[in-house]
Measured scan of single mutants.
Amino acid sequence: MKVMIRKTATGHSAYVAKKDLEELIVEMENPALWGGKVTLANGWQLELPAMAADTPLPITVEARKL
């Protein structure tokens, strides 16, 4: 699914347009965010693609819901 990742004042957030859902990312498998699992505030887990740590945000990526 397409997910937009952006930086907020409190960390990172994910927006899933198909579900009209925006949630804070509360847990990251990798400190650089990319190439691992993230957990959203509502409990969803997404697998993000591997990208460079300095990838500019906001960005829309293809993520997989676990």
Rank of each mutant, 00 (worst) to 15 (best):
R64Y: 12
D54H: 08
V16G: 01
M1T: 08
R64W: 11
E62D: 11
K65G: 09
N42G: 07
K7H: 07
E27M: 10
L24N: 13
K2L: 14
M51V: 05
P49M: 05
V26G: 03
I59D: 03
G36S: 04
E23K: 04
T10P: 03
T10F: 14
V16I: 15
D20Y: 11
P56G: 07
V61S: 02
E23I: 15
I59P: 00
L24S: 11
A41L: 06
T39V: 12
M4S: 10
N30Q: 10
I25G: 00
K65I: 15
E29W: 06
E62H: 12
E62K: 10
K2G: 07
T39Y: 07
V38M: 01
S13Y: 15
M1K: 01
L24R: 12
E23A: 14
S13T: 13
E22H: 11
E23D: 06
L24F: 09
T60S: 08
P58I: 05
K2R: 13
M51W: 05
V26T: 09
A52E: 10
A14M: 13
K18F: 15
A17V: 15
G36C: 03
D54N: 11
W34E: 02
M4G: 04
N30E: 08
N42Y: 02
T55C: 05
L46I: 11
M4C: 12
E27I: 09
L33C: 07
A53T: 10
T55P: 06
A50S: 11
A50G: 07
P49T: 03
T60F: 11
K37L: 12
P56R: 09
R64K: 13
I5R: 00
A63K: 02
T60I: 12
T39G: 03
E27P: 01
P56T: 10
Y15D: 03
P31T: 09
L33Y: 03
V38Y: 02
P58D: 02
P31K: 12
T8G: 07
V38N: 00
I25H: 00
K18R: 12
G35S: 04
G35Y: 04
A52N: 09
P49V: 04
A52P: 15
R6N: 10
V61T: 04
R6K: 14
D54M: 07
D54L: 07
A17E: 14
L40W: 02
P49A: 03
L57T: 05
A53C: 07
T10C: 14
W34D: 02
V3S: 00
W44G: 01
R64Q: 10
H12C: 08
K37C: 10
A17F: 15
V38S: 01
S13V: 13
N30M: 10
A53G: 09
N30K: 11
L66M: 11
A14G: 03
T39C: 08
E27C: 14
G43K: 01
A9M: 10
R64L: 12
K19L: 15
A9V: 10
E22M: 09
M51T: 02
A50L: 12
L40P: 01
T8V: 11
L21T: 11
L57P: 01
K19Y: 15
M28T: 10
T39K: 10
L46R: 00
A53E: 13
I5W: 02
E22F: 10
I25P: 00
G35N: 06
K19T: 14
L40S: 02
E27N: 10
K37H: 09
G36M: 04
K19Q: 15
Q45F: 08
G36F: 05
Q45R: 11
K19G: 14
L66D: 05
L21H: 08
D54F: 04
R6G: 06
V61L: 07
E27F: 14
R6A: 10
K18C: 15
P56K: 12
G11T: 03
Y15C: 08
T55I: 07
G11Q: 04
P56D: 08
A41V: 03
M28G: 03
G11F: 04
G36R: 01
W34C: 03
A50K: 12
I5S: 00
V26L: 08
G35R: 02
T39H: 04
K7A: 10
D20Q: 12
V26S: 05
M51R: 04
P56L: 10
M28E: 03
A32Q: 14
P56W: 07
E47A: 11
P49R: 04
V16D: 09
V38I: 14
Q45D: 06
T10E: 13
G35T: 03
Q45L: 12
Q45I: 15
R64E: 07
L66A: 08
A41E: 08
S13I: 13
D20G: 13
L48P: 02
E23F: 15
K18H: 15
K19H: 15
A17L: 15
T8F: 06
A53H: 11
